[in-house]
Amino acid sequence: SEEELIEKAEKLRKEFEFIWNGIRFIIRENADEIRRFEELLKE
């Protein structure tokens, strides 16, 4: 039914948001290391 689809979509959206926030947190935490690594690659 349509309601089930909406519920599934909402659940997926929440899971995606949770994963995305996790990725963003990891990137933020490691931003300095990532930048340093990029500098090494440029040399």
Rank of each mutant, 00 (worst) to 15 (best):
K11P: 06
N30G: 12
F25A: 13
I34R: 02
I26G: 00
E3L: 09
L12V: 06
N30A: 14
A9S: 05
I34C: 14
I23H: 03
I27K: 00
I6F: 08
D32W: 12
S1T: 04
N21H: 05
E7L: 10
K14T: 10
E29P: 05
F37A: 02
R28E: 05
G22I: 15
E38F: 15
I26V: 02
R35W: 11
G22P: 00
R28W: 13
E15R: 14
E2Q: 08
I23A: 00
K8T: 09
N30M: 15
D32V: 10
K14R: 11
A31Q: 03
E43Q: 09
E17K: 09
E17S: 10
R24T: 03
I19N: 00
S1F: 08
S1I: 13
L41A: 03
W20E: 00
I27M: 05
E3W: 12
R36K: 06
E15L: 15
A31W: 13
E43P: 06
E29V: 14
E4L: 06
F18W: 13
F37S: 01
E43R: 10
D32N: 09
L40V: 03
I27Q: 01
A9W: 14
I6L: 12
K11F: 11
L5S: 04
R28H: 04
K14N: 07
S1D: 09
L41I: 09
R35Q: 04
K11M: 09
L5M: 04
E2H: 09
I26L: 09
E29I: 14
G22C: 15
S1M: 11
R13G: 05
F16D: 00
A9D: 03
F16M: 05
A9C: 15
E43W: 13
R35V: 11
F16P: 00
R36A: 04
L5W: 12
E33D: 04
D32S: 10
A9I: 13
I23Y: 01
I6Q: 04
A9P: 05
N30Y: 15
S1Y: 09
F16S: 00
I19Q: 00
E2V: 12
I26K: 00
I19Y: 04
E7I: 12
E4I: 10
F18H: 02
D32P: 08
A9M: 13
I26M: 05
E39M: 07
N21K: 09
K14Q: 07
D32M: 08
I6P: 08
E7H: 09
I26D: 00
K8V: 09
F18N: 03
G22T: 14
F37W: 07
L12H: 04
R24D: 01
